[in-house]
Every structure is written in structure tokens, then in C-alpha cells.
């Protein structure tokens, strides 16, 4: 039997197929929820970081935002995962996928905050001034006028972040979550055939990333069309 046949025989059993599908589902879920959570956290942190006020309360918030970014950008994702899973969220009764999504969201939020900040800075200052001069509050102006344009400018970078987030989910197997990497590792370990399963795994990630970049392209085109530039 060739190595491919060995792999295929193992792969096509219902049990393995099912574990691969759940793995794919978990990977996708973690990446998508992580991205959404990271995006929301990023928007909030970025907004906090650029508030012009020198209010004490705001200053404290800014320091906290800085600390958050420093901590989550300054430590490896895997260490955060191990630490939060085995030391912090111990005894917290939430589904593991949700927990891991939360951890990925927190990590991605730190990067997203900087992405959004550069996006917000890329919007002309006059937009905020015009909105303020009409009597809108800082936050209304931010949400209605500046952030939509900032997001539009940041779409390619957000896509980048999403892709790297998706690939980073492959480390969740260290805490025993059944993602797609773990499913293929199981196949490889049980057949002692390593080349084909890992090539297949790489292909799956590659296809996922291609799909994401296609989606990003479509979104970009759509956003451009809406302004007919």
C-alpha cells in the first residue's frame, strides 16, 4: 500500500471524518469569534487611546489601554493560552470553544487596537471637526462618521489580522481542544505516515486562507463601489 492509500483508508473511516469536520468547525469558530471580539475590543481601545481630553478618568483609561496592549502584544499567544486556560479560567464553566475564542479575541484585540488607531488617524481631521461643529458629541461623531471611514481604510489590514489569527488557531491543540490540526495529528500518529496527512492539513489551511482573502477582496470592492470613487 502506498502512503496515500494508508492515509486515505484511515481518513475515510466515519470516526476520523467526523473528528476532522468538528476540528474544521472549531477552527473556523475560534477564528471568526476571535476576530469579531478582537474587532470590538480594538475599536473601543483605539477610541479610548485617541480621546483628546485630559480628564483624570480618561487618563487612567488610557493607561489601562496601553497596559492591555503591552501585555497581550508582549507575550506569545501560546503562553497566554496556557496561562489563561490552566490558571485563570480554571473552574469557569464555559464551553472550551467559547473560552478559546475569548482568549484569541483578547489577543487579537491588542493588535486590532493599533490597526484601528492607524485607521482612525488616516481619516481626515476635518471630518471630526465638521461633526463636532454641528453639535454632535465626540462619541456620536466617532461612531457615525469617523469609525465607518476608519474601518474602510483598515479592511486590508484587518484581513491580514484575520488570516494570521486563523493560522494561529493551530496551537489550541496544546490545551487539548479538538481543532483541525489535532485531528490530522491523530491520523498521522496512528498510521506512522507523516508526509501525506500534514500536506493535506497545510492544503486545508491554504484553502481557508484563500477563501478569506477572496472575501476581503469582495468586501473592498463593495466598499469602493458604494462611494463610486
Amino acid at each position: 500500500m502506498s502512503s496515500f492509500e494508508i492515509f486515505w483508508e484511515r481518513f475515510s473511516t466515519p470516526g476520523t471524518l467526523k473528528s476532522v469536520l468538528t476540528g474544521l468547525q472549531n477552527t473556523a469558530a475560534i477564528a471568526v469569534f476571535g476576530l469579531i471580539l478582537g474587532f470590538l475590543i480594538g475599536c473601543i481601545i483605539a477610541t479610548v487611546k485617541i480621546i483628546p481630553s485630559q480628564n483624570i478618568f480618561v487618563t487612567i483609561l488610557k493607561r489601562l489601554a496601553d497596559a492591555y496592549i503591552a501585555v497581550f502584544r508582549g507575550t506569545p499567544m501560546m503562553v497566554q493560552l496556557l496561562l489563561l486556560h490552566f490558571a485563570v479560567f480554571i473552574g469557569v464553566n464555559i464551553p472550551p470553544v467559547a473560552e478559546v475564542s475569548l482568549i484569541f479575541g483578547l489577543n487579537s484585540g491588542a493588535y486590532m487596537a493599533e490597526i484601528m488607531r492607524s485607521g482612525i488617524n488616516s481619516v481626515d481631521k476635518g471630518q471630526m471637526e465638521a461633526a463636532r461643529s454641528l453639535g454632535l458629541s465626540y462619541f456620536t461623531a466617532m461612531i457615525r462618521v469617523v469609525l465607518p471611514q476608519a474601518v474602510k481604510n483598515a479592511v486590508p489590514t484587518i484581513g491580514n489580522e484575520f488570516i494570521s489569527l486563523l493560522k494561529e488557531t493551530s496551537i489550541v491543540s496544546v490545551i487539548g481542544l479538538a481543532d483541525i490540526t489535532r485531528a490530522f495529528k491523530a491520523i498521522a500518529d496512528s498510521t506512522f505516515e507523516y508526509f501525506i496527512p500534514y500536506i493535506a492539513l497545510a492544503l486545508i489551511y491554504f484553502v481557508l486562507v484563500m477563501i478569506i482573502s477572496l472575501i476581503i477582496k469582495l468586501i473592498e470592492r463593495r466598499l469602493k463601489k458604494s462611494e463610486k470613487r
Partner: peptide, 30 residues
Amino acid sequence: INVQRRRMGMVFQQFNLFNNLTVLKNITLA
């Protein structure tokens, strides 16, 4: 200040229309 600014219209050199909104929404937003 936001309440006071409602009664002071301002027009800028660079127009500063909101690029992400249609003309009508630009006017009705505030």
C-alpha cells in the same frame, strides 16, 4: 459645548462633507 454648538453653523475651507454618507444623510445626520 455640544448644546451651544448646535446654534453655531460652521463652514470649512475643505468642505468636510462626511464621505461615508450620502448627501441627504450628511444633512440629516445631526
